[in-house]
Computed example of a mutant assay.
Amino acid sequence: MIYRSGRRMLRPDKVRVKRFGSRWRGLDPAEVYAYLRALADELDRACQAESVARLEAERLRHALGEWRSRHARCWFVDPQRRTPPGTPNRGPW
């Protein structure tokens, strides 16, 4: 199960299209928009990394479930009770 916060996430496309009003003695628009482009690119990379991490986590979750189902009936065997090599397999498996 994946949990998310109730807040809306800031997406790269929203940062790229954001426009600001102009004011007298305001900030340099070219500098602001260059910063926003860099921020949007960084957000894009972070979103892609998150997507890859979620896929990997799901793959591992699935593999662990398969491993658990295959080994559900296995249990620890005391090494002293194990059969010597070359004898028929009479273990608890």
Rank of each mutant, 00 (worst) to 15 (best):
A63D: 13
M1C: 04
M1V: 11
Q80C: 02
G26I: 06
W75Q: 07
A38L: 10
R7G: 07
P12K: 05
L43D: 03
L10N: 08
N89L: 13
Y33C: 00
R54L: 13
L43T: 00
R59N: 09
P88Q: 12
W24G: 06
A46D: 07
D78K: 00
A63R: 09
E50V: 01
R16H: 01
E31S: 15
K18W: 12
V77N: 04
R73V: 08
V17E: 15
D44H: 02
I2N: 11
W93C: 10
P12V: 05
R73E: 14
R25I: 05
R54N: 10
T87Y: 09
L60G: 01
R7F: 13
G86E: 02
H62T: 07
R54H: 03
Q80A: 14
A46H: 02
W75E: 11
K14H: 13
R73L: 14
A72G: 02
G21W: 05
K18A: 15
D13C: 02
A46W: 01
A53W: 06
L10R: 12
E66D: 07
C47F: 06
A72H: 08
D28P: 04
L39K: 12
G6L: 08
L10T: 13
G91E: 13
S5K: 09
A57F: 05
G86M: 02
V17H: 05
D41Y: 05
L39T: 12
N89T: 03
V32T: 13
R7Y: 08
H71Q: 02
D44F: 00
W75S: 14
T87A: 11
C74W: 10
R19A: 11
R16S: 10
S51Y: 05
D78E: 07
Y35Q: 13
Y33H: 14
F20C: 03
W75G: 07
W93M: 07
G26M: 09
K14R: 09
D44L: 00
L10D: 06
V77Y: 02
P29F: 10
D13N: 15
E31V: 10
A40S: 14
P84F: 01
P92K: 07
S5N: 12
E42K: 14
V32S: 03
G91Y: 06
E66Y: 01
K14A: 15
P92T: 14
P29I: 07
L60E: 12
V32R: 12
L27G: 13
R23W: 05
L64K: 07
A34S: 13
D44I: 00
R7I: 02
E31G: 04
Y33Q: 15
V17I: 04
P29D: 07
C74S: 09
G6A: 08
G21K: 14
R68I: 09
M1I: 08
R81C: 06
A49S: 07
L60Y: 04
V17A: 15
A34V: 02
L64P: 00
P88A: 08
H62M: 05
W67A: 14
G86D: 03
F20R: 08
R82G: 05
S5I: 03
A72N: 03
A72W: 00
A46I: 02
Y33P: 02
K18M: 14
D28A: 13
L64W: 06
W24M: 11
E56W: 06
L55K: 12
S22Q: 10
D28Q: 04
K14M: 14
Q80V: 10
G26V: 11
H71R: 12
R16G: 03
